[in-house]
Design a protein around this nucleic acid. Structure first.
Length: 613
DNA sequence: CCGAGATGTCATTGT
DNA sequence: ACACAATGACATCTC
C-alpha cells in the first residue's frame, strides 16, 4: 500500500491523517460520558435490594443460590424441622419413616415433567401416560432445563423464565384455578398413567389461595412487562392467602424448599441408582450462573476486577471519567502528560505553521495535520496518556522550523555537527583564528555558526549560491532550473545533491518518528479503550448475573409458594418427595410425580451432551 | 562519566 | 530509471 502521507506535492499530508481522524471519531463514540444503561442498572440494583429484602422476608436468603450454603442450611433445617412441623404437615401421608423419607426427598425435591394443559400457567396435577411422555418431554421441560452455556440459550432461558413468571402473574389467579377446577377427575391422562400414585388428581388445589400478593408484587418488580399489569390483578391476589398459610410456611420453609430446586446434588437416597437426577428447572441456570461467576472471578483476578465490588466499579466506570484500570495511567501521569502535551502541541502547531511558511511552496513537512490531531485530542479531553506522551511531543517539534526566522537555521534543532566530513571544507567552516574582533556581530556569527547544520556549513564552505532550504525543498524541476542557472563545480553539485538527499531524509526521519509515536499513542489509547470496554462488559455481566440470580430466587420462592399451597383431594399437602412442579415452555405449570420428572430429567441431560457432540 | 532521549545520517526498500 | 518517502540501524549530541 502506498503511503498516505506523501505530502510533498499534495501539500499537507491530510490523507495521512484520515486514519487518525477516523480513529478519534470512533473512540469518541466509544466513550460516552455515561451510559444510560448503567444508570438503569443502578436502579436495578435498588430493585434487587428490595427484592432481596422481600426474599428475606419470605425466608429466602441470598445464600440460597450458594449451593454449599444451601446444603448446609438444609441439613440444619432438616434436623430442626424434621420431627416437628414436617411430621405434622405430612402426617396424612403416614409414619415417621415416611417423614424421614420426606426429609431426604425434601432435599432432593425436583421438578417433574408433566403434561400440560393448553391453558397457560395453569397448575394442574397431571398423570401422564408413559406413551405420551417421550413426545411430551420436549415441550414439557422448560427451556430452563437446558443447561447449555451458549449465550443464546441463556438468553432464551431468561426470556422463558420471564414469560413464565409473567404469565403466572397474569393468569395464575384466574385461568389456572379454572383449569384446575374444571379438569375432570377422570382425566384420561391419569387413567393411563401406570406410575401415578393412586391419589387422584386433586382439583382442589389451593393454588388460587396462594399468597400471590407478594408474588405479584415481586413480579412487577421483576418483569417490566408485568408492571403494566393492572393493579387489580395483584390486589385480587391478596385475599387469596390461605388460612393455613402459616403451617405451610413453616412446613415449606424456604430453606427447606430450596432443596426442591436443587435436588439432584443433594439427593443421597431416592435416586442414587437411577442415574443423574432430573435437573432442577433452575438448576441449569444456576449452575451456569455459578460457572459464569467463577469465570468472572477468574477474569477479575486476571484484571484486578472484583465482581463482588461490581457496584463500586459500576459507579466508577459509569462516570466514564477516563479512569483506567491500569494503575500506570494514574491521574498524576495523566495530568502531567496533559500539561506537557498542551505545551508541546502549541509548539508543534506553531512549528508546523512556520514550517509551511519557511519551507517554500513544497510544504515538505507533512505533519502540520498531526499537530492538529494533537490539538483535537486535547480538546477532546484525551486521557490516559503515559508519560511518554510528553516525551514524544517534546521531541517532535523542538523544530528546526521554529528557527526559520534565521536564514541558516531552519533545520537546526540540536547542533548535531557530528559526522562532519573531515575535509578541508570543515576546517574552512571554522572561524579563522585570526579574527580578533570580538564584537557583537562576531558573537552573533558564532551563534549562527553553532546553529547551522553540518550541511549548511558545508554549503557555505563550498560557496553554494543558494540556501539549503531551496536545495532541499524545491521541486525537482525548479531545483534543476536553479542548478542550471549557476556554473557549479562537480564538488558543489555533489554536495548540493547530498544536501538535498540528507535534508529530505532528515524530514522523512522526523515524520517517520512522529508517525511512529502517533502509532504508539494510538495503540495505547486503543488499549485503554479496550480495557474500558472490557471493564464495562464485565460490569454488565455482573449485573446480569445478579439479575438472573434474583430471578431464579424469585422463581424458587414462587415454586415454594405454589407447591406449599397445593392440596390433594383430602386437603393434604403434596409431598415434595413424590411430586414436583414442572414448568412448560408455554408457561404452564403442572404438578407431576417425581418419578416421571426423574425420567425426563435424565433424558434432558443427555440431550445437551448429544447436541454438543 | 553514564544513560536516556533526541536528532541526523546512511542504507535499503518500496512506490 | 529516477526521485523520493519510509524506515531500520547507527552515530552523535544534549541533558
Amino acid at each position: 500500500m502506498t503511503r498516505l502521507d506523501r505530502s510533498s506535492h499534495s501539500g499537507g499530508g491530510h490523507a495521512k491523517d484520515r486514519p487518525l481522524y477516523s480513529w478519534l471519531a470512533g473512540h469518541r463514540v466509544a466513550q460516552p460520558p455515561s451510559t444510560p444503561g448503567s444508570r438503569a442498572s443502578v436502579q436495578d440494583i435498588d430493585l434487587i435490594d428490595i427484592l432481596w429484602r422481600q426474599d428475606i422476608d419470605l425466608g429466602a436468603g441470598r445464600e440460597v443460590f450458594d449451593y454449599s450454603h444451601r446444603q448446609k442450611e438444609q441439613d440444619v433445617d432438616k434436623e430442626l424441622q424434621d420431627g416437628g412441623e414436617r411430621e405434622d404437615t405430612w402426617a396424612g401421608e403416614g409414619a415417621e419413616a415416611l417423614a424421614r423419607d420426606l426429609l431426604v426427598d425434601g432435599e432432593t425435591g425436583e421438578s417433574f415433567p408433566a403434561q400440560f394443559p393448553a391453558d397457560v400457567s395453569s397448575i394442574t396435577e397431571a398423570v401422564p401416560s408413559e406413551s405420551e411422555s417421550p413426545t411430551l418431554q420436549n415441550s414439557l421441560l422448560s427451556p430452563l432445563l437446558t443447561g447449555t452455556e451458549s449465550p443464546f440459550d441463556l438468553e432464551q432461558q431468561w426470556q422463558d423464565l420471564m414469560s413464565i413468571m409473567e404469565m403466572q402473574a397474569m393468569e395464575v389467579n384466574t385461568s389456572a384455578s379454572e383449569i384446575l377446577y374444571s379438569a375432570p377427575p377422570g382425566d384420561p391422562l391419569s387413567t393411563n398413567y401406570s406410575l401415578a400414585p393412586n391419589t387422584p388428581i386433586n382439583q382442589n388445589v389451593s393454588l388460587h389461595q396462594a399468597s400471590l400478593g407478594g408474588c405479584s408484587q415481586d413480579f412487577s418488580l421483576f418483569s417490566p412487562e408485568v408492571e403494566s399489569i393492572p393493579v387489580a390483578s395483584s390486589s385480587t391476589l391478596l385475599p387469596l392467602v390461605p388460612s393455613n398459610s402459616t403451617s405451610l410456611n413453616s412446613t415449606f420453609g424456604s430453606t427447606n424448599l430450596a432443596g426442591l430446586f436443587f435436588p439432584s446434588q443433594l439427593n443421597g437416597t431416592a435416586n442414587d441408582t437411577s442415574g443423574p437426577e432430573l435437573p432442577d428447572p433452575l438448576g441449569g441456570l444456576l449452575d451456569e450462573a455459578m460457572l459464569d461467576e467463577i469465570s468472572l472471578m477468574d477474569l477479575a483476578i486476571e484484571e484486578g476486577f472484583n465482581p463482588v465490588q461490581a457496584s463500586q466499579l459500576e459507579e466508577e466506570f459509569d462516570s466514564d471519567s477516563g479512569l483506567s484500570l491500569d494503575s500506570s495511567h494514574s491521574p498524576s501521569s495523566l495530568s502531567s502528560s496533559e500539561g506537557s502535551s498542551s505545551s508541546s502541541s502549541s509548539s508543534s502547531s506553531s512549528a508546523s505553521s512556520s514550517a509551511s511558511s519557511s519551507f517554500s511552496e513544497e510544504g515538505a513537512v507533512g505533519y502540520s495535520s498531526d499537530s492538529e490531531t494533537l490539538d483535537l485530542e486535547e480538546a477532546e479531553g484525551a486521557v490516559g496518556y503515559q508519560p511518554e506522551y510528553s516525551k514524544f511531543c517534546r521531541m517532535s517539534y523542538q523544530d528546526p522550523s521554529q528557527l526559520s526566522c534565521l536564514p541558516y537555521l531552519e533545520h537546526v534543532g540540536h547542533n548535531h555537527t557530528y559526522n562532519m566530513a573531515p575535509s578541508a571544507l570543515d576546517s574552512a567552516d571554522l572561524p579563522p583564528p585570526s579574527t580578533l574582533k570580538k564584537g557583537s556581530k562576531e558573537k552573533q556569527a558564532d551563534f549562527l555558526d553553532k546553529q547551522m547544520s553540518r550541511d549548511e556549513h558545508r554549503a557555505r564552505a563550498m560557496k553554494i549560491p543558494f540556501t539549503n532550504d531551496k536545495i532541499i525543498n524545491l521541486p525537482v524541476e525548479e531545483f534543476n532550473e536553479l542548478l542550471s542557472k549557476y556554473q557549479l563545480s562537480e564538488a558543489q553539485l555533489s554536495l548540493i545533491r547530498d544536501i538535498r538527499r540528507r535534508g529530505k531524509n532528515k524530514m522523512a526521519a522526523q515524520n517517520c518518528r512522529k508517525r511512529k509515536l502517533d502509532t504508539i499513542l494510538n495503540l495505547e489509547r486503543d488499549v485503554e479503550d479496550l480495557q474500558r470496554d472490557k471493564a464495562r462488559l464485565l460490569r454488565e455481566k455482573v449485573e446480569f448475573l445478579r439479575s438472573l440470580r434474583q430471578m431464579k430466587q424469585k422463581v424458587q420462592s414462587l415454586y415454594q409458594e405454589v407447591f406449599g399451597r397445593l392440596r390433594d383431594e383430602n386437603g393434604r399437602p403434596y409431598s415434595p418427595s413424590q411430586y414436583a412442579l414442572q414448568y412448560a415452555g408455554d408457561g404452564s405449570v403442572l404438578l407431576i410425580p417425581r418419578t416421571m420428572a426423574d425420567q425426563q430429567a435424565r433424558r434432558q441431560e443427555r440431550k445437551p451432551k448429544d447436541r454438543r457432540k
